[in-house]
Design a protein around this nucleic acid. Sequence first.
DNA 1: CAGTGGTCTAGACCACGTG
DNA 2: ACGTGGTCTAGACCACTGT
Lengths: 233, 233
Amino acid sequence: MTVAPKISYLDIKEIVLKRIKNFTWAPGSIMPGEIELATEFGCARATVNRAMRELAEDGYIDRKRKAGTRIKSFPTRKAKFVIPIIRDEIELTGATYRYALINREFRDPPDWLRTQMTIPQNTPVLHLMCLHYADSKAFQYEDRWINLNAAPKAVDQDFEEMGPNEWLIKQVPFSDAEITFSTINADTQVADLLNVTVGTALVTLERITWFTNAPITYTKLYFHAGYQMTSRL
Amino acid sequence: MTVAPKISYLDIKEIVLKRIKNFTWAPGSIMPGEIELATEFGCARATVNRAMRELAEDGYIDRKRKAGTRIKSFPTRKAKFVIPIIRDEIELTGATYRYALINREFRDPPDWLRTQMTIPQNTPVLHLMCLHYADSKAFQYEDRWINLNAAPKAVDQDFEEMGPNEWLIKQVPFSDAEITFSTINADTQVADLLNVTVGTALVTLERITWFTNAPITYTKLYFHAGYQMTSRL
DNA sequence: CAGTGGTCTAGACCACGTG
DNA sequence: ACGTGGTCTAGACCACTGT
């Protein structure tokens, strides 16, 4: 006789997904419970549970205690964009990565920054303007602000060789962050730095980073013209 | 005596994450194995396993059989943007959603579309131009192309009342898709439709959707000026 | 080959939320 | 109140891969 290889939670995910796509279980309806499915597939409930948990994470079903598991009428599309380390992103294309510091100044935070970072008026900040090159082409302009109360060691860093991101990660790794992805028309300054005409549509990414509730740094990244992010669902 | 409530995999995630942030376990180094941690936390290995598996998914650690679990030097930043149903997105702001069909025509696919969708030259396609309003303000312009060989029923749909996305989801739910997020300067047509000045930087989202390897539809969405996506990490 | 993570089991108890 | 999913356990075997 042939041996039936034990069923995996991946097999279950696949089968269940097929039934959803088939309309075997209609959108909006309740599907069988875990015990029932475990019986059908001849496996433990824990195995079914894992499969269903992941399908819920993927946005295909909604699960509620007592109420059961319901097929979503409109699946939630979750696009995951990996924010790569810029050096990696550039070197992945085969180009050579180069970093350059354009400007560095100590100053009081401008109003918009205080609002963004929620820091008091007298907080000393370090403002850096950086360029990241792919070969000799400007790839990304980085507008960086560092809260010196939260990261006092930044005062002694000249940031000539090492970019602020790499340096900060060594000081305060794994912080919480909020990022916003948006778009702007290049002003004269940015257009000059990225070598595009004024008004060109550019992707921008803003990030505020906290460490234990203290806002450490604000960054606004301006990508080169034509930059895009792709994701498979 | 006080009862020690059983430790949860969430507690373990939290503790381990704290140690990573603390440099208790240095970036790049190997951390203790699952059995060891299970002993320390006084729980089953399965519980530790779940915690570690999720931390790996979140991009904090790398796990390999035999080699063990290693702290990532540069954590992978994964920004998850939920692509909302446009009606939901608009109604969530308290505005009223309205849909309007601008144009509808049957034609041969232009070259760029054939390239994007990988369909032969003689494939009949339906081209739709749609507008989505928040109250009376144009919120999003939708440039939609439907492969009529893959979705022949679209021929009989006038798309006057129901948007193509909602209609398609009812025909072919839960398909695979590839989305690209980019930015453009508004041309005269789009500027007119979205009521912005020509050249305004706009966020665009392109999506190609397949069902069982057949490309069904291509969409390019043009968001209103100032649209942004935010994500917490 | 040996060690580590990956998965499965059979059973148990718990927590939430619907009816 | 009670049914469903959420989680934990203790043990087992497997799969990958570094040595």
